[in-house]
């Protein structure tokens, strides 16, 4: 049943990220011998952790065909709030983490309120909170840098069974998110809403609740990512996590999440985040001009988004509504699995 011809173009389109990942990895390993070492691999996975965590949250939002541009500012604001409390009240690491998560989730709730209850488009809401969030953070710190206490550094450099703390948290987030998206009613409804929000309403899904929740998830993940980043750089300055929304969206889309909603998974977001960091590290190893590096990264992202759009048009063609019976099953069978 459903026997299909193997179509090389479709295969490449559907596995573009993994193919790109392998090509980039092999390329850098050949061009720079120091690149292909366990130490270096652990290093760039560690550096990819916080991007990966935001990308996971972003994936929830993108799956509903929404967007959250405010994650960078959310990382900053929640790190500022928890950092200030650590400095002024001597808060321990764990309570500080909880404070950060609460701040980030509240941030997400504010986004969700404007999007769901006031029906303002996600792009405008989160673009506004991007500016406002950083503004509040700058006001709270009077634009000063916050140096975090030593215990934060200890937390950031901590290990469990030889695995660095950031990677551990990253893996945990991916795992939990994976279960939520694939195994819980909420997760499946996220996909349904992204596929067809009208049909979701007709099927009796509380679409408002689902959309509200994804922005909470994104806010929560942003705060966690901010905390992980803060524990690695041990300070929170004005430009902390600035522009990270771009990496998060890129990682998610690189991982096969469609900006049109309904398609994607956290596993892809994870691969995407590591890929972005790997390119960054590889470029440094090969001593590519510092000013050219952002362009190379942007180019790779562009290529992937281009693939996404290619996939989308192929899909649209295959999903055309038929008004005559088509005996040949293949014609009505789109390629994505």
């Amino acid at each position: 049943m459903n026997a299909r011809r193997w179509n090389p173009l479709q295969f490449v389109l559907n596995n573009s990220t993994l193919i790109l990942f392998a090509l980039v990895f092999i390329g850098f390993s050949l061009s720079s011998p120091r690149f292909f070492t366990v130490e270096n691999v652990i290093n760039f996975v560690k550096q990819a952790s916080f991007t990966g965590i935001i990308a996971v949250g972003m994936t929830f939002v993108l799956l509903t065909a929404g967007i959250d541009l405010s994650v960078g500012s959310n990382m900053y604001l929640s790190a500022v709030v928890s950092g200030l409390l650590m400095r002024t009240m001597g808060l321990e690491v764990l309570p500080a983490l909880l404070v950060a998560l609460a701040t980030g989730t509240l941030f997400g709730a504010i986004n969700a309120f404007f999007i769901v209850n006031l029906r303002i488009i996600p792009f405008m809401v989160t673009l506004s909170t991007l500016v406002i969030g950083r503004g509040i953070g700058t006001a709270l710190t009077e634009s000063q840098q916050i140096d975090l206490p030593q215990r934060m550094a200890t937390f950031g450099q901590g290990q469990l069974a030889g695995i660095p703390m950031p990677i551990l948290l990253f893996a945990l987030v991916v795992l939990v998110a994976y279960f939520i998206l694939t195994r819980t009613p909420f997760g499946r409804q996220v996909y349904a809403v992204g596929n067809d929000v009208e049909a979701a309403k007709k099927a009796g899904i509380n679409t408002d609740r689902v959309i509200f929740m994804v922005y909470l998830v994104s806010g929560f993940c942003a705060a966690l990512a901010g905390f992980v980043l803060a524990s690695q750089v041990i300070r929170v300055d004005r430009s902390f996590a600035e522009g990270r929304e771009f990496d998060a969206i890129a990682a998610s889309v690189l991982g096969g999440t469609s900006l049109f909603g309904g398609v994607g998974n956290v596993y892809g977001a994870m691969v995407g985040a590591v890929l972005i960091q790997m390119v960054q590290t590889g470029l440094q190893f090969n001593q590519v001009n510092l000013y050219l590096q952002p362009m190379v990264r942007a180019f790779i992202i562009f290529i992937t988004v281009f693939f996404d759009s290619l996939r989308e048009t192929t899909q649209a063609r295959l999903k055309r509504r038929f008004i005559r019976p088509v005996e040949n099953r293949e014609a009505s069978t789109p390629a994505r699995t």
């Binding site: 939520i180 819980t184 009613p185 499946r188 596929n195 049909a199 979701a200």
Partner: peptide
């Protein structure tokens, strides 16, 4: 009115899945 990205089973049960609890998650 089907969700093309979900399975047959998920389409049928999308509004009310039979679920069991696993800690804080409803699976």
């Amino acid at each position: 009115n089907l969700f093309t990205n979900l399975s047959i089973a998920e389409n049928i049960f999308i509004d009310a899945f039979p679920a069991r609890r696993l800690g804080p998650l409803r699976l």
